[in-house]
Design a protein around this nucleic acid. Sequence first.
RNA 1: GGUCUCGUGGCCGAGUGGCUAGGCAGUGGUCUGCAAAACCAUCCACAGCGGUUCGAAUCCGCUCGAGACCUCCA
Length: 487
Amino acid sequence: MDALHLYNTLSGKKEKFEAIKPPFVGLYVCGPTVYSNVHLGNCRTFISFDLINRYLRYLGYQVRYVRNITDAGHLENDAEVGEDKISKKARLESLEPMQIVQTYSIDFRDKMEVFNTLPPDIEPTATGHIVEQIDIIKDIMDKGLAYEINGSVYFDVLKYSETDNYGILSGRKIDELLSGSRALDGQDEKKNAVDFALWKKASPSHIMRWNSPWGEGFPGWHLECSVMSTKYLGESFDIHGGGMDLKFPHHECEIAQNKAANGTHAVKYWLHGNMLTFEGTKMSKSLGNSILPNELFSGDHKLLNKGFDPMVVRFFMLQAHYRSTLDFSNEALEASEKGFQRLMAAFETLHSLDVSDTSDIDSDSYKSLFEGAMNDDFNSPILISHMFDLVKAINSVADGRMTINQATKDGLTELMQHFVVDILGLTPSKQGDGAALIDGLMDVIIDVRNRSRLNKDWATSDAIRDQLKDLNIVVKDGKDGAKWEAQ
RNA sequence: GGUCUCGUGGCCGAGUGGCUAGGCAGUGGUCUGCAAAACCAUCCACAGCGGUUCGAAUCCGCUCGAGACCUCCA
Protein backbone atom coordinates (compact mmCIF):
# COMPACT_ATOMS: atom_id res chain seq x y z
CA MET A 1 0.00 0.00 0.00
CA ASP A 2 1.31 3.44 -0.82
CA ALA A 3 -0.56 5.26 1.93
CA LEU A 4 -1.24 4.38 5.52
CA HIS A 5 -4.40 2.40 6.07
CA LEU A 6 -5.59 1.26 9.43
CA TYR A 7 -8.34 -0.96 10.71
CA ASN A 8 -10.99 1.13 12.41
CA THR A 9 -12.97 -0.86 14.94
CA LEU A 10 -15.77 1.64 14.55
CA SER A 11 -16.35 0.81 10.90
CA GLY A 12 -14.98 -2.70 10.98
CA LYS A 13 -12.88 -1.92 7.93
CA LYS A 14 -9.46 -0.83 6.91
CA GLU A 15 -9.58 2.88 6.13
CA LYS A 16 -7.13 5.26 4.61
CA PHE A 17 -5.60 7.34 7.37
CA GLU A 18 -6.25 11.03 7.02
CA ALA A 19 -5.23 13.22 9.91
CA ILE A 20 -7.82 15.72 11.05
CA LYS A 21 -5.29 18.54 11.11
CA PRO A 22 -2.10 17.39 9.45
CA PRO A 23 0.73 17.29 10.26
CA PHE A 24 -0.63 16.86 13.77
CA VAL A 25 -1.98 13.59 15.09
CA GLY A 26 -3.69 13.10 18.42
CA LEU A 27 -3.15 9.63 19.84
CA TYR A 28 -4.78 8.51 23.08
CA VAL A 29 -4.16 5.08 24.58
CA CYS A 30 -5.79 3.68 27.69
CA GLY A 31 -3.03 3.02 30.17
CA PRO A 32 -2.86 0.66 33.13
CA THR A 33 -4.62 0.62 36.45
CA VAL A 34 -1.70 0.80 38.82
CA TYR A 35 -2.73 -1.56 41.56
CA SER A 36 -0.22 -4.31 40.75
CA ASN A 37 2.79 -5.06 38.58
CA VAL A 38 2.21 -4.94 34.84
CA HIS A 39 2.25 -8.38 33.35
CA LEU A 40 3.34 -9.40 29.90
CA GLY A 41 -0.11 -9.18 28.41
CA ASN A 42 -0.41 -5.57 29.49
CA CYS A 43 2.98 -4.89 27.99
CA ARG A 44 1.97 -6.27 24.63
CA THR A 45 -0.71 -3.65 24.15
CA PHE A 46 1.66 -0.82 24.93
CA ILE A 47 4.33 -2.25 22.67
CA SER A 48 1.73 -2.47 19.89
CA PHE A 49 0.83 1.17 20.26
CA ASP A 50 4.47 2.09 20.58
CA LEU A 51 4.95 0.65 17.11
CA ILE A 52 2.02 2.70 15.85
CA ASN A 53 3.30 5.85 17.51
CA ARG A 54 6.77 5.30 16.07
CA TYR A 55 5.52 4.67 12.56
CA LEU A 56 3.30 7.75 12.56
CA ARG A 57 6.35 9.78 13.53
CA TYR A 58 8.41 8.13 10.81
CA LEU A 59 5.77 9.23 8.31
CA GLY A 60 6.39 12.79 9.44
CA TYR A 61 3.37 13.34 11.64
CA GLN A 62 3.72 15.43 14.73
CA VAL A 63 2.13 13.09 17.22
CA ARG A 64 0.84 14.10 20.60
CA TYR A 65 0.74 10.81 22.43
CA VAL A 66 -1.37 10.74 25.58
CA ARG A 67 -1.53 7.67 27.78
CA ASN A 68 -3.28 7.85 31.10
CA ILE A 69 -2.58 6.18 34.39
CA THR A 70 -5.67 5.02 36.21
CA ASP A 71 -5.03 5.62 39.86
CA ALA A 72 -8.59 5.86 41.14
CA GLY A 73 -12.14 5.09 40.32
CA HIS A 74 -11.82 1.56 39.15
CA LEU A 75 -14.66 -0.41 40.60
CA GLU A 76 -13.67 -3.86 41.58
CA ASN A 77 -16.93 -5.75 41.77
CA ASP A 78 -20.55 -5.02 41.26
CA ALA A 79 -21.19 -1.35 41.72
CA GLU A 80 -23.38 -1.80 44.75
CA VAL A 81 -20.74 -3.47 46.86
CA GLY A 82 -17.98 -2.06 44.76
CA GLU A 83 -14.73 -0.98 46.15
CA ASP A 84 -12.04 0.94 44.48
CA LYS A 85 -9.22 -1.28 43.24
CA ILE A 86 -6.56 1.00 44.57
CA SER A 87 -8.09 1.48 47.97
CA LYS A 88 -8.73 -2.22 48.40
CA LYS A 89 -5.12 -3.02 47.86
CA ALA A 90 -4.10 -0.18 50.14
CA ARG A 91 -6.18 -1.43 53.01
CA LEU A 92 -4.88 -4.94 52.64
CA GLU A 93 -1.34 -3.79 52.96
CA SER A 94 -2.04 -0.93 55.34
CA LEU A 95 -0.59 1.50 52.91
CA GLU A 96 -1.63 4.90 51.80
CA PRO A 97 -3.43 4.55 48.44
CA MET A 98 -1.07 6.92 46.73
CA GLN A 99 1.79 4.77 47.95
CA ILE A 100 0.36 1.88 45.97
CA VAL A 101 -0.07 4.12 42.99
CA GLN A 102 3.49 5.32 43.22
CA THR A 103 4.96 1.84 43.57
CA TYR A 104 3.21 0.43 40.55
CA SER A 105 3.52 3.55 38.44
CA ILE A 106 7.26 3.30 38.84
CA ASP A 107 7.18 -0.37 37.96
CA PHE A 108 5.09 0.38 34.90
CA ARG A 109 7.34 3.14 33.61
CA ASP A 110 10.39 1.06 34.31
CA LYS A 111 9.06 -1.86 32.27
CA MET A 112 8.01 0.39 29.44
CA GLU A 113 11.55 1.72 29.30
CA VAL A 114 13.08 -1.74 29.39
CA PHE A 115 10.92 -2.69 26.42
CA ASN A 116 12.17 0.45 24.70
CA THR A 117 8.80 2.08 24.24
CA LEU A 118 8.82 5.81 23.70
CA PRO A 119 7.26 7.61 26.66
CA PRO A 120 3.95 9.35 26.03
CA ASP A 121 4.04 13.12 25.64
CA ILE A 122 1.45 13.47 28.37
CA GLU A 123 0.73 10.90 31.06
CA PRO A 124 -2.26 12.22 32.98
CA THR A 125 -3.76 10.61 36.05
CA ALA A 126 -7.37 10.22 37.07
CA THR A 127 -6.77 11.70 40.52
CA GLY A 128 -5.25 14.75 38.92
CA HIS A 129 -8.46 15.42 37.03
CA ILE A 130 -11.21 15.10 39.62
CA VAL A 131 -12.34 18.68 39.03
CA GLU A 132 -12.70 18.17 35.31
CA GLN A 133 -14.58 14.94 35.89
CA ILE A 134 -17.03 16.64 38.20
CA ASP A 135 -17.52 19.33 35.57
CA ILE A 136 -18.39 16.89 32.85
CA ILE A 137 -20.81 15.05 35.12
CA LYS A 138 -22.62 18.31 35.77
CA ASP A 139 -22.68 18.93 32.06
CA ILE A 140 -24.16 15.53 31.29
CA MET A 141 -26.74 15.97 34.06
CA ASP A 142 -27.69 19.36 32.63
CA LYS A 143 -28.39 17.66 29.35
CA GLY A 144 -30.68 15.24 31.12
CA LEU A 145 -28.58 12.18 30.40
CA ALA A 146 -27.52 11.38 33.94
CA TYR A 147 -29.31 11.17 37.26
CA GLU A 148 -28.35 11.26 40.91
CA ILE A 149 -29.44 8.70 43.45
CA ASN A 150 -28.17 8.51 47.02
CA GLY A 151 -25.07 10.51 46.32
CA SER A 152 -24.14 8.59 43.21
CA VAL A 153 -24.59 9.67 39.62
CA TYR A 154 -25.41 7.29 36.78
CA PHE A 155 -25.42 7.68 33.05
CA ASP A 156 -28.90 7.09 31.65
CA VAL A 157 -28.18 4.71 28.82
CA LEU A 158 -31.80 4.24 27.76
CA LYS A 159 -32.35 7.96 27.51
CA TYR A 160 -29.16 8.34 25.54
CA SER A 161 -30.26 5.57 23.22
CA GLU A 162 -33.33 7.51 22.20
CA THR A 163 -31.15 9.78 20.10
CA ASP A 164 -27.84 8.02 19.92
CA ASN A 165 -26.48 4.58 19.35
CA TYR A 166 -25.12 3.03 22.51
CA GLY A 167 -23.33 0.02 21.04
CA ILE A 168 -21.98 1.78 18.01
CA LEU A 169 -18.47 0.51 18.72
CA SER A 170 -19.03 -2.91 20.18
CA GLY A 171 -22.14 -3.88 18.26
CA ARG A 172 -24.13 -4.44 21.44
CA LYS A 173 -27.88 -4.10 21.41
CA ILE A 174 -29.56 -2.52 24.37
CA ASP A 175 -32.27 -5.18 24.44
CA GLU A 176 -29.74 -7.95 24.54
CA LEU A 177 -27.77 -6.20 27.23
CA LEU A 178 -30.88 -5.79 29.33
CA SER A 179 -32.01 -9.34 28.97
CA GLY A 180 -28.56 -10.79 29.29
CA SER A 181 -27.45 -8.86 32.30
CA ARG A 182 -27.22 -10.59 35.59
CA ALA A 183 -29.40 -8.13 37.35
CA LEU A 184 -29.89 -10.04 40.55
CA ASP A 185 -26.75 -9.51 42.54
CA GLY A 186 -27.37 -6.85 45.15
CA GLN A 187 -30.11 -5.27 43.06
CA ASP A 188 -28.94 -1.74 42.98
CA GLU A 189 -30.12 1.77 42.73
CA LYS A 190 -29.60 2.18 39.02
CA LYS A 191 -32.70 2.71 36.92
CA ASN A 192 -31.50 0.11 34.48
CA ALA A 193 -28.86 -2.54 34.61
CA VAL A 194 -27.09 -1.05 31.61
CA ASP A 195 -26.58 2.33 33.27
CA PHE A 196 -23.06 2.97 34.45
CA ALA A 197 -21.60 5.08 37.22
CA LEU A 198 -20.19 8.53 36.61
CA TRP A 199 -19.76 9.17 40.30
CA LYS A 200 -19.97 6.79 43.22
CA LYS A 201 -20.75 7.75 46.76
CA ALA A 202 -17.98 6.68 49.09
CA SER A 203 -18.96 4.40 51.93
CA PRO A 204 -17.65 5.41 55.37
CA SER A 205 -14.76 2.97 55.12
CA HIS A 206 -13.76 4.00 51.64
CA ILE A 207 -10.44 5.78 51.83
CA MET A 208 -10.18 7.37 48.41
CA ARG A 209 -12.76 10.14 48.41
CA TRP A 210 -13.30 13.62 47.11
CA ASN A 211 -15.89 16.32 47.70
CA SER A 212 -18.46 16.82 45.02
CA PRO A 213 -21.86 18.43 44.58
CA TRP A 214 -23.29 15.00 45.46
CA GLY A 215 -21.28 14.46 48.61
CA GLU A 216 -18.03 12.61 49.15
CA GLY A 217 -17.26 10.02 46.57
CA PHE A 218 -15.06 9.01 43.68
CA PRO A 219 -15.34 9.08 39.89
CA GLY A 220 -16.48 6.22 37.69
CA TRP A 221 -13.86 4.44 35.68
CA HIS A 222 -14.93 5.40 32.17
CA LEU A 223 -15.02 9.09 32.89
CA GLU A 224 -11.34 9.83 33.21
CA CYS A 225 -10.54 8.83 29.64
CA SER A 226 -13.31 11.00 28.23
CA VAL A 227 -12.09 13.93 30.27
CA MET A 228 -8.39 13.59 29.74
CA SER A 229 -8.53 12.78 26.05
CA THR A 230 -10.62 15.84 25.23
CA LYS A 231 -8.65 18.03 27.60
CA TYR A 232 -5.34 17.27 25.94
CA LEU A 233 -6.35 16.39 22.39
CA GLY A 234 -9.53 18.34 21.84
CA GLU A 235 -13.15 17.42 21.31
CA SER A 236 -12.19 15.71 18.10
CA PHE A 237 -8.97 13.79 17.70
CA ASP A 238 -7.46 11.16 15.45
CA ILE A 239 -6.73 7.88 17.16
CA HIS A 240 -7.89 6.20 20.33
CA GLY A 241 -6.35 2.87 21.21
CA GLY A 242 -6.44 0.25 23.89
CA GLY A 243 -6.69 -3.44 24.52
CA MET A 244 -9.45 -5.45 22.89
CA ASP A 245 -10.94 -6.16 26.29
CA LEU A 246 -11.66 -2.47 26.80
CA LYS A 247 -13.92 -2.24 23.78
CA PHE A 248 -16.92 -2.96 25.89
CA PRO A 249 -17.96 -1.47 28.15
CA HIS A 250 -15.12 1.00 28.67
CA HIS A 251 -14.80 2.52 25.22
CA GLU A 252 -18.48 2.29 24.51
CA CYS A 253 -19.13 4.33 27.63
CA GLU A 254 -16.44 6.81 26.69
CA ILE A 255 -18.15 7.46 23.40
CA ALA A 256 -21.49 7.96 25.10
CA GLN A 257 -20.02 10.37 27.62
CA ASN A 258 -18.30 12.44 24.98
CA LYS A 259 -21.33 12.52 22.78
CA ALA A 260 -23.54 13.47 25.71
CA ALA A 261 -21.26 16.21 26.93
CA ASN A 262 -19.89 17.68 23.72
CA GLY A 263 -22.31 16.48 21.10
CA THR A 264 -19.42 15.00 19.17
CA HIS A 265 -18.07 11.55 18.72
CA ALA A 266 -14.57 12.53 19.67
CA VAL A 267 -12.58 9.79 17.99
CA LYS A 268 -11.98 9.31 14.28
CA TYR A 269 -10.14 5.98 14.38
CA TRP A 270 -10.58 3.39 17.10
CA LEU A 271 -7.75 0.85 17.26
CA HIS A 272 -7.70 -2.24 19.43
CA GLY A 273 -4.79 -4.50 20.18
CA ASN A 274 -5.38 -8.17 20.74
CA MET A 275 -4.55 -10.31 23.72
CA LEU A 276 -1.47 -12.26 24.62
CA THR A 277 -2.55 -15.80 25.34
CA PHE A 278 -0.96 -18.64 27.18
CA GLU A 279 -1.90 -22.11 25.96
CA GLY A 280 -4.71 -20.49 24.05
CA THR A 281 -6.19 -18.62 26.98
CA LYS A 282 -5.98 -14.92 27.65
CA MET A 283 -3.19 -14.08 30.03
CA SER A 284 -4.70 -12.39 33.02
CA LYS A 285 -4.00 -12.02 36.63
CA SER A 286 -7.29 -13.42 37.76
CA LEU A 287 -6.69 -16.65 35.86
CA GLY A 288 -3.27 -17.01 37.40
CA ASN A 289 -1.56 -17.55 34.07
CA SER A 290 0.15 -14.22 33.83
CA ILE A 291 3.88 -13.78 33.66
CA LEU A 292 5.69 -10.71 34.88
CA PRO A 293 8.40 -9.10 32.75
CA ASN A 294 11.07 -9.71 35.38
CA GLU A 295 10.18 -13.37 35.55
CA LEU A 296 10.58 -13.61 31.81
CA PHE A 297 13.90 -11.79 31.77
CA SER A 298 15.38 -13.95 34.48
CA GLY A 299 13.66 -17.19 33.54
CA ASP A 300 12.60 -17.49 37.15
CA HIS A 301 9.14 -18.89 36.55
CA LYS A 302 7.91 -22.43 36.65
CA LEU A 303 6.68 -22.26 33.08
CA LEU A 304 9.99 -21.03 31.66
CA ASN A 305 13.10 -22.94 30.70
CA LYS A 306 15.31 -19.89 30.56
CA GLY A 307 15.36 -16.12 30.58
CA PHE A 308 14.90 -13.88 27.57
CA ASP A 309 16.27 -10.49 26.72
CA PRO A 310 13.62 -7.74 26.63
CA MET A 311 14.46 -7.04 23.00
CA VAL A 312 13.81 -10.67 22.13
CA VAL A 313 10.44 -10.42 23.82
CA ARG A 314 9.66 -7.26 21.92
CA PHE A 315 10.71 -8.88 18.65
CA PHE A 316 8.57 -11.90 19.47
CA MET A 317 5.55 -9.67 19.92
CA LEU A 318 6.23 -7.74 16.73
CA GLN A 319 6.33 -10.98 14.77
CA ALA A 320 2.58 -11.19 15.24
CA HIS A 321 0.09 -8.64 13.98
CA TYR A 322 -1.26 -6.40 16.72
CA ARG A 323 -4.86 -7.39 15.97
CA SER A 324 -4.19 -11.11 16.27
CA THR A 325 -3.92 -13.05 19.46
CA LEU A 326 -0.39 -14.17 20.14
CA ASP A 327 0.32 -17.39 21.96
CA PHE A 328 3.15 -17.38 24.42
CA SER A 329 5.44 -20.37 24.82
CA ASN A 330 9.03 -21.27 25.48
CA GLU A 331 9.40 -22.70 22.03
CA ALA A 332 8.06 -19.61 20.34
CA LEU A 333 10.32 -17.37 22.40
CA GLU A 334 13.36 -19.46 21.60
CA ALA A 335 12.55 -19.33 17.91
CA SER A 336 12.25 -15.56 18.08
CA GLU A 337 15.51 -15.31 19.96
CA LYS A 338 17.40 -17.06 17.19
CA GLY A 339 15.69 -15.03 14.52
CA PHE A 340 16.33 -11.79 16.35
CA GLN A 341 20.01 -12.55 16.68
CA ARG A 342 20.24 -13.39 13.00
CA LEU A 343 18.53 -10.16 12.04
CA MET A 344 20.75 -8.04 14.24
CA ALA A 345 23.87 -9.87 13.08
CA ALA A 346 23.01 -9.08 9.48
CA PHE A 347 22.47 -5.46 10.43
CA GLU A 348 26.03 -5.47 11.78
CA THR A 349 27.32 -7.26 8.72
CA LEU A 350 25.79 -4.60 6.49
CA HIS A 351 28.10 -1.96 7.94
CA SER A 352 31.21 -3.86 6.97
CA LEU A 353 30.26 -5.02 3.48
CA ASP A 354 32.80 -4.46 0.71
CA VAL A 355 31.35 -2.34 -2.06
CA SER A 356 31.65 -2.80 -5.80
CA ASP A 357 30.77 -0.72 -8.83
CA THR A 358 27.79 -2.92 -9.50
CA SER A 359 24.91 -3.86 -7.28
CA ASP A 360 22.61 -6.88 -7.29
CA ILE A 361 20.48 -5.24 -4.63
CA ASP A 362 18.25 -2.22 -4.83
CA SER A 363 17.50 -0.34 -1.66
CA ASP A 364 14.47 1.49 -3.03
CA SER A 365 12.59 -1.71 -3.67
CA TYR A 366 13.14 -2.80 -0.07
CA LYS A 367 12.02 0.58 1.12
CA SER A 368 8.75 0.32 -0.73
CA LEU A 369 8.26 -3.24 0.54
CA PHE A 370 8.91 -2.15 4.11
CA GLU A 371 6.65 0.86 3.91
CA GLY A 372 4.00 -1.12 2.09
CA ALA A 373 3.85 -3.61 4.92
CA MET A 374 3.56 -0.96 7.60
CA ASN A 375 1.08 1.05 5.59
CA ASP A 376 -1.18 -1.97 5.61
CA ASP A 377 -2.45 -1.53 9.16
CA PHE A 378 0.99 -1.68 10.73
CA ASN A 379 1.74 -5.19 9.52
CA SER A 380 5.00 -5.75 11.34
CA PRO A 381 5.14 -9.52 10.67
CA ILE A 382 5.19 -8.83 6.94
CA LEU A 383 7.77 -6.12 7.44
CA ILE A 384 9.97 -8.56 9.33
CA SER A 385 9.57 -11.21 6.65
CA HIS A 386 10.84 -8.72 4.06
CA MET A 387 13.70 -7.93 6.39
CA PHE A 388 14.73 -11.54 6.40
CA ASP A 389 14.81 -11.49 2.62
CA LEU A 390 17.19 -8.58 2.93
CA VAL A 391 19.18 -10.50 5.54
CA LYS A 392 19.66 -13.22 2.99
CA ALA A 393 20.84 -10.70 0.41
CA ILE A 394 23.25 -9.05 2.85
CA ASN A 395 24.76 -12.39 3.74
CA SER A 396 25.11 -13.26 0.07
CA VAL A 397 27.13 -10.11 -0.48
CA ALA A 398 29.25 -10.91 2.54
CA ASP A 399 29.74 -14.35 1.06
CA GLY A 400 30.93 -12.88 -2.25
CA ARG A 401 28.04 -14.30 -4.21
CA MET A 402 26.39 -10.94 -4.81
CA THR A 403 27.62 -7.37 -5.07
CA ILE A 404 26.52 -4.06 -3.64
CA ASN A 405 27.59 -0.51 -4.49
CA GLN A 406 28.20 2.35 -2.11
CA ALA A 407 24.95 4.14 -2.81
CA THR A 408 22.89 1.03 -2.16
CA LYS A 409 24.85 0.20 0.94
CA ASP A 410 24.23 3.69 2.30
CA GLY A 411 20.58 3.49 1.38
CA LEU A 412 20.14 0.13 3.08
CA THR A 413 21.99 1.24 6.17
CA GLU A 414 19.67 4.20 6.53
CA LEU A 415 16.65 2.04 5.77
CA MET A 416 17.56 -0.54 8.39
CA GLN A 417 18.30 2.17 10.91
CA HIS A 418 14.83 3.59 10.35
CA PHE A 419 12.91 0.36 10.36
CA VAL A 420 14.81 -1.78 12.84
CA VAL A 421 15.78 0.85 15.35
CA ASP A 422 13.37 3.76 14.92
CA ILE A 423 10.19 1.91 14.00
CA LEU A 424 10.43 -1.59 15.43
CA GLY A 425 12.33 -0.14 18.36
CA LEU A 426 14.87 -2.94 18.41
CA THR A 427 18.35 -2.40 19.76
CA PRO A 428 21.12 -4.96 20.05
CA SER A 429 20.80 -7.19 23.09
CA LYS A 430 22.62 -5.97 26.13
CA GLN A 431 23.91 -9.28 27.28
CA GLY A 432 26.80 -7.75 29.19
CA ASP A 433 24.78 -7.18 32.31
CA GLY A 434 23.26 -10.63 32.30
CA ALA A 435 24.06 -12.81 35.24
CA ALA A 436 23.83 -15.88 33.04
CA LEU A 437 26.62 -14.58 30.87
CA ILE A 438 28.84 -13.92 33.86
CA ASP A 439 28.20 -17.42 35.13
CA GLY A 440 29.14 -18.84 31.79
CA LEU A 441 32.30 -16.79 31.57
CA MET A 442 33.33 -17.80 35.03
CA ASP A 443 32.86 -21.44 34.18
CA VAL A 444 35.21 -21.01 31.26
CA ILE A 445 37.80 -19.23 33.36
CA ILE A 446 37.64 -21.77 36.15
CA ASP A 447 37.95 -24.55 33.66
CA VAL A 448 41.06 -23.04 32.06
CA ARG A 449 42.58 -22.62 35.48
CA ASN A 450 41.80 -26.17 36.46
CA ARG A 451 43.56 -27.42 33.39
CA SER A 452 46.64 -25.37 34.07
CA ARG A 453 46.67 -26.78 37.60
CA LEU A 454 46.49 -30.30 36.27
CA ASN A 455 49.56 -29.46 34.17
CA LYS A 456 51.15 -28.03 37.28
CA ASP A 457 51.28 -24.72 35.42
CA TRP A 458 51.07 -22.83 38.69
CA ALA A 459 52.17 -19.54 37.22
CA THR A 460 49.09 -19.47 35.04
CA SER A 461 46.65 -20.69 37.65
CA ASP A 462 47.92 -18.22 40.24
CA ALA A 463 47.83 -15.38 37.74
CA ILE A 464 44.20 -16.15 37.02
CA ARG A 465 43.41 -16.26 40.71
CA ASP A 466 45.23 -13.02 41.41
CA GLN A 467 43.64 -11.17 38.53
CA LEU A 468 40.19 -12.32 39.57
CA LYS A 469 40.99 -11.15 43.07
CA ASP A 470 41.60 -7.70 41.64
CA LEU A 471 38.06 -7.85 40.30
CA ASN A 472 36.83 -8.81 43.77
CA ILE A 473 36.17 -12.35 42.74
CA VAL A 474 37.59 -14.94 45.06
CA VAL A 475 38.46 -18.42 43.89
CA LYS A 476 38.21 -21.14 46.49
CA ASP A 477 39.81 -24.51 45.85
CA GLY A 478 38.11 -27.42 47.51
CA LYS A 479 37.98 -31.20 47.34
CA ASP A 480 35.22 -31.06 44.73
CA GLY A 481 36.95 -28.50 42.56
CA ALA A 482 37.08 -24.73 42.55
CA LYS A 483 34.27 -22.40 43.50
CA TRP A 484 34.11 -18.68 43.02
CA GLU A 485 32.38 -15.90 44.78
CA ALA A 486 31.90 -12.25 44.03
CA GLN A 487 32.73 -10.05 47.01
C1' G B 1 -27.51 -18.49 27.09
C1' G B 2 -26.46 -13.84 23.84
C1' U B 3 -22.82 -11.18 20.59
C1' C B 4 -18.33 -11.78 18.01
C1' U B 5 -13.60 -13.77 16.41
C1' C B 6 -10.64 -17.67 14.97
C1' G B 7 -9.13 -22.71 13.39
C1' U B 8 -2.64 -22.63 8.32
C1' G B 9 3.01 -27.61 7.86
C1' G B 10 6.72 -30.24 14.44
C1' C B 11 6.25 -24.92 16.97
C1' C B 12 5.16 -19.45 16.36
C1' G B 13 2.92 -16.75 12.70
C1' A B 14 1.43 -13.75 7.68
C1' G B 15 -1.69 -14.03 3.52
C1' U B 16 -4.32 -12.64 -1.85
C1' G B 17 -9.73 -16.33 -5.33
C1' G B 18 -5.26 -18.84 -9.63
C1' C B 19 1.51 -16.68 -9.30
C1' U B 20 2.64 -21.35 -3.41
C1' A B 21 5.22 -14.88 3.55
C1' G B 22 8.82 -15.24 7.25
C1' G B 23 11.22 -17.16 11.78
C1' C B 24 12.56 -21.64 14.65
C1' A B 25 13.07 -26.88 14.35
C1' G B 26 14.21 -31.02 10.64
C1' U B 27 17.09 -32.64 6.29
C1' G B 28 21.28 -31.86 2.72
C1' G B 29 25.56 -28.91 1.94
C1' U B 30 29.76 -24.92 2.60
C1' C B 31 33.24 -23.64 6.22
C1' U B 32 36.13 -25.88 10.20
C1' G B 33 42.00 -29.77 13.35
C1' C B 34 37.25 -31.46 16.04
C1' A B 35 32.84 -29.32 17.70
C1' A B 36 29.83 -25.20 17.92
C1' A B 37 28.51 -20.90 15.51
C1' A B 38 27.69 -18.77 10.85
C1' C B 39 26.13 -19.17 5.85
C1' C B 40 23.57 -21.62 1.50
C1' A B 41 19.77 -25.00 -0.21
C1' U B 42 15.47 -27.76 0.91
C1' C B 43 10.97 -31.05 2.75
C1' C B 44 6.31 -30.54 5.37
C1' A B 45 0.06 -26.76 5.33
C1' C B 46 -4.19 -24.59 5.07
C1' A B 47 -10.05 -28.57 11.03
C1' G B 48 -14.03 -31.72 8.48
C1' C B 49 -18.14 -32.08 4.92
C1' G B 50 -20.86 -29.86 1.13
C1' G B 51 -21.67 -25.64 -2.37
C1' U B 52 -20.34 -21.32 -5.79
C1' U B 53 -16.33 -20.99 -9.57
C1' C B 54 -12.66 -22.76 -15.28
C1' G B 55 -10.03 -22.67 -10.44
C1' A B 56 -10.53 -21.75 -3.34
C1' A B 57 -6.48 -22.25 2.29
C1' U B 58 -8.75 -17.51 0.54
C1' C B 59 -16.40 -16.64 -1.02
C1' C B 60 -21.18 -19.25 1.04
C1' G B 61 -23.58 -23.10 4.27
C1' C B 62 -23.26 -26.83 7.90
C1' U B 63 -20.44 -29.84 11.57
C1' C B 64 -16.61 -30.14 15.07
C1' G B 65 -13.04 -27.42 18.00
C1' A B 66 -10.78 -23.05 20.40
C1' G B 67 -11.05 -18.19 22.26
C1' A B 68 -12.90 -13.12 23.52
C1' C B 69 -16.72 -9.96 25.38
C1' C B 70 -21.53 -9.74 28.05
C1' U B 71 -18.41 -8.37 35.69
C1' C B 72 -12.61 -5.85 36.73
C1' C B 73 -9.02 -6.58 32.99
C1' A B 74 -4.13 -4.33 28.08
